[in-house]
């Protein structure tokens, strides 16, 4: 994919940090506001896909390569299971909360929920980018 005109590129470049930040906000405030790991992860992935469409595949791959995405996806999945196992080992049940609860409405509160949302967010971001790459590469293989 070669990329698009200068107008699209400039707007994509300007929008990228804000979209990314908004996605990160949704993920980190998953336990306080509507949204959470999945929608936030999709927004972050969308920001990367937007860059990919505007600048072409090479530039986007520099920011988030296939290998990075694959590793991140595994890390996200493993993080969720490890958090669950914490509950099993330190508490009594799988996914039981073992962290301090904090005050209602604070960013650092609700025990292991923010961490779980973080895990889900990482996994969803990486997963959606991987799906996008997989579709791109599938077509590229056919052309060659």
């Amino acid at each position: 994919m070669a990329g698009m005109t200068v107008i699209v590129r400039t707007i994509a470049r300007l929008l990228f940090p804000f979209t990314f930040l908004f996605g990160a906000y949704i993920v980190l405030h998953g336990h306080l506001t509507p949204g959470g790991g999945f929608p936030g992860g999709v927004i972050i992935a969308a920001s990367v896909v937007m860059l990919l469409l505007a600048y072409g595949i090479e530039r986007a791959q520099k920011r988030m390569g296939l290998l990075q995405a694959e590793v991140l996806e595994s890390i996200g999945g493993v993080a969720i299971v490890v958090l669950g196992l914490f509950g099993l080992l330190l508490g009594a049940f799988f996914l039981q909360n073992v962290f301090p609860l904090g005050d209602l409405g604070q960013l650092f509160s609700a025990g292991n929920l923010p961490l779980l949302y973080l895990g889900v967010g990482i996994k969803v971001t990486a997963g959606i980018i991987l799906i996008f790459y997989a579709m791109l590469f599938a077509f590229r293989e056919e052309k060659e």
Binding site: L67, E70, V71, E73, S74, I75, G77, V78, V81, G84, L85, L88, F94
Partner: peptide
């Protein structure tokens, strides 16, 4: 202890780790 849940978690955990192991 916790054998029933571990029986489901172990393959799930190993499946997530597998790409990292491969890399």
């Amino acid at each position: 202890p916790h054998a029933p849940i571990l029986a489901i978690l172990l393959p799930l955990f190993a499946a997530f780790l597998m790409p990292v192991v491969g890399i």
